[in-house]
């Protein structure tokens, strides 16, 4: 059930230079791939709009978000403290498909956020992460991901795992005989488009979580519409999860 409530921060933990976990009680059980709109629950009007944030984890009524500080809103949120109110609206949007066979969860940077819960809840017999970071220093939660599934780390400078891009790692794994039935990707748009190319080449079904600036997250403001090569989409309502064909020019 969707709801919009003011709840209190139960835990706030820095996990790297610029990323933190925020936990708060939230009763509605989300589906993997869904997101919430998060704002300050104290009535302040600046920052005004809520921020779309993926579900990193949900367990027994406790919602956890993994947030990277990129601007003013996320910075102020990082400076909140346990016990302070936040407004959470959700769970929103569609969800990742489940698949029984082999599934790869591919994330770049903060794009790894929705993959933890997705892999945890997945019924795949064989699941693995491909997680890309800029460097070992800028990585986070690597042990937590390792607990959920086999994890292939890649980094831009080779300081963590191998020096490859996530889509190159996917290609290498397929060539080594580990072709998945499904890949689920989240990260910078360039990364997702590259993952799509590799998946398409090998005939693998690929699913992606898109980002867009949002006003409401519930389909009311029409602010989140983006023109993708394949279609014009209202990300909060039709997504945020889309088939890889969205990266292909419509003929």
């Amino acid at each position: 059930m969707q709801r919009s409530i003011v709840t209190k921060i139960a835990d706030l933990m820095q996990v790297s230079n610029d990323a933190f976990l925020l936990a708060a009680p939230f009763e509605s059980e989300p589906l993997p791939g869904q997101f919430v709109m998060l704002s300050f629950g104290d009535g302040r009007t600046d920052p005004f709009l809520p921020r779309p944030i993926s579900i990193f984890d949900w367990e027994g009524g406790m919602l956890t978000l993994l947030i990277r500080v990129v601007g003013r809103g996320t910075l102020l949120m990082a400076h909140q403290a346990v016990g302070m109110p936040v407004r959470v609206t959700g769970p929103l949007g569609n969800s990742f498909p489940d698949e029984a066979g082999r599934v790869f969860f591919i994330g770049g940077g903060i794009g790894i956020a929705p993959l933890y819960y997705a892999a945890k809840r997945s019924h795949a017999k064989n699941k693995a992460f491909i997680l890309g970071f800029r460097s070992a220093e800028e990585s986070y939660l690597t042990d937590d991901y390792l607990k959920v599934a086999d994890t292939h780390f890649v980094s831009d400078d080779g300081s963590l795992g191998v020096k490859l891009f996530p889509h190159e790692k996917l290609d290498a794994l397929v060539k080594a005989g580990e072709k998945p039935d499904l890949v689920i990707a989240c990260g910078p748009e360039k990364m997702m488009a590259a993952v799509h190319e590799v998946a398409k080449k090998h005939g693998i079904r690929d699913i992606h979580s898109l980002e867009s600036r949002m006003g409401c997250g519930i389909g009311a403001c029409l602010g989140c519409r983006v023109q993708m090569p394949g279609a014009s989409v209202l990300v909060c309502k039709e997504g945020p999860v889309f088939d890889g064909s969205i990266f292909e020019e419509k003929k």
């Binding site: 009007t45 600046d46 920052p47 005004f48 709009l49 809103g73 600036r213 949002m214 006003g215 403001c221 029409l222 602010g223 989140c224 519409r225």
Partner: peptide
Amino acid sequence: RIVETASGMLNSI
């Protein structure tokens, strides 16, 4: 289509 501003927002839906 949307930019947040001080205590408000701009829209060009």
